[in-house]
Amino acid sequence: MKVRFWGVRGSLPVPGRLTNRYGGNTSCVEVRPRGDWPIIIDAGTGIRRLGKSMMESAFGDGRGTAHVLISHTHWDHIQGLPFFSPFYQQGNRVHVFARQRHDTHLQAVFASQTEDPYFPVPLSALRAEIEFHELVEGSQFEIGRAKVTCTRLNHPWIAMAYRIDVDGAAIVYCSDTAPFSDVLLEHEFIRTPPQVGGVLDPAVAEKLASMRAGLVAMCRGADLLIYDTQFTPEEYRARPHWGHSTPDDAIHVAREAGVKTLCLYHHAPTRTDEQQDVILHATQELCRTAGEPFEVIAAYEGLELALGDEEGA
């Protein structure tokens, strides 16, 4: 399979010279099993260019099928959807997957993204056939030859991590999540930052431990682990309730799960290319010194990786 990054930024798109190399578009990754339709993970602003490139293929004639896995519906993960060209071509089929809500059907959540007065084109006016699929933690399903599994993460309003197994390789997409140590993030707004390293209620600690164990199990042996590393340790200490991790947190999961490559992802909007270089090099150095068996890379727009049967092809 091939994996290509179309948007690597968290929270807000950040155009400008300072982000030209890593890219300013928000979250979007394309996974393309060999000879098959694309599986898209998240629909931040990066999906706009991906959609345009897809229109050069069968999607341009309304003969394409795409699957979109949404980690969660925070704006930086869905903002690009109304600008996804294949939606506007009759005949295309798009399946959108996301976690089931406790109160609202997924289709209503996505419909409200583009209803009046927020956007001129309502969901009902799109010409492709769009089907919404609600997931619960642990859901397993197949997209063509690909096997997809998911587990929940520690993020406000809850995000999902996905694993895709196909062509003899496995990737895991794990964004957005806080580490599983200081606060449980679900449906409650947390006004005051909890103390990092403080003592947790035993029930909360158990739930977090179980969530983390689920993630580590899902990451087991993956060729590529794409992980939310938006924060530096200082930023995390100030905002542990915002639902993002540091490279250290990602290293621990990567080590325990025995992955082959760890990919830093969901870069902070304020991070310049130079600052991101520093974070990448420090993380690589740390892992080299510690003798970690995995490689560390950082996602940037346009990065394409070939995995499994595709390697060397």
């Binding site: 950040v14 155009p15 030209n20 890219g23 300013g24 602003t45 706009r48 690009g80």
Partner: peptide
């Protein structure tokens, strides 16, 4: 929609 990239550096995205 914001348009990041080197091709919009001068006017801005």
């Amino acid at each position: 929609i914001p348009a990041p990239g080197p091709e919009t550096n001068r006017y801005g995205g």
